[in-house]
Simulated assay, not measured.
Amino acid sequence: MPRISRISRRTFLAGLGGLGGAAALTACSGSGGSQPPAADFEASGTPSPTPLPPVTVNAATGPVQVPGEPLRVVVLDTDVLDSMLTLGITPVGAALPAADTGFPAYWPASRTAGVRLVGPAGAPDLAALRALRPDLILSNQTRDGDRYEQLRAIAPTVLTQTTGAPWKANFQLHAQALGRVAAGAAFVASYQKHAGQVAGALAAAKLSGRKVSLVRFTEGGGIRLFGRQSFPGSVLADAEVGRPDAQNVDQSDFEIPLDQIGRADGDLLLYATYGDPEKAGEEAALASPGWQGLGAVKAHRAFPVDDQLWFQGIGYTGANFVLDELQRFLGA
Rank of each mutant, 00 (worst) to 15 (best):
P304F: 05
G313N: 04
A285M: 13
D307V: 04
G275M: 03
L294A: 03
G293W: 02
S288D: 07
G295D: 12
E278Q: 15
E283R: 14
L294T: 07
Q312W: 06
Y274F: 14
V305C: 13
P277T: 11
L294R: 05
P304Q: 05
W310Q: 08
I314Q: 14
F311Y: 14
L286Y: 07
H300E: 14
K279T: 09
Y316Q: 07
H300Y: 08
L309Q: 04
G290I: 14
I314N: 15
E283I: 14
A319P: 10
E283T: 15
V297K: 06
D276I: 06
P277Q: 12
E278L: 12
P304R: 07
A284E: 12
D306Q: 13
Q312E: 15
Q292R: 15
Q308W: 00
A285T: 15
L294Q: 05
P289I: 11
Q308L: 13
K298L: 10
P277Y: 04
Q292M: 08
V297W: 01
A302W: 00
T317Q: 09
L309A: 02
A280Y: 03
Q312L: 11
P304C: 05
V297Y: 06
L286Q: 08
E278R: 15
G293Y: 02
G275S: 04
G293R: 01
V305S: 10
S288A: 11
Q312C: 05
G281I: 02
G290F: 11
A299D: 12
W291T: 01
Q308Y: 01
F311A: 03
G275N: 08
E282W: 07
E278W: 05
G313V: 01
P277H: 10
W291P: 00
P289C: 10
P304G: 06
K298C: 05
G293Q: 09
P277S: 10
Q312A: 14
A296R: 08
G295V: 00
P289R: 03
G315W: 02
G313T: 02
S288T: 05
G313C: 05
A280F: 02
L286N: 11
L286I: 09
G293S: 11
G318H: 01
G318C: 04
G281E: 02
P304Y: 05
D307A: 11
L309I: 00
L294N: 08
T317A: 08
R301E: 14
G293M: 04
R301L: 13
A285I: 06
A299R: 12
V305L: 14
K279M: 11
P289G: 06
G275C: 09
D306W: 00
P277F: 09
G281S: 09
G315V: 09
F311T: 07
R301V: 10
L309P: 07
A284N: 10
A296F: 02
P304W: 04
V305K: 06
E283H: 14
H300G: 15
A287D: 13
A284I: 08
V305M: 09
K279E: 12
A287K: 15
A299P: 03
G318T: 05
G295Q: 12
P289S: 10
K298F: 00
Q308H: 10
Y274W: 13
I314W: 00
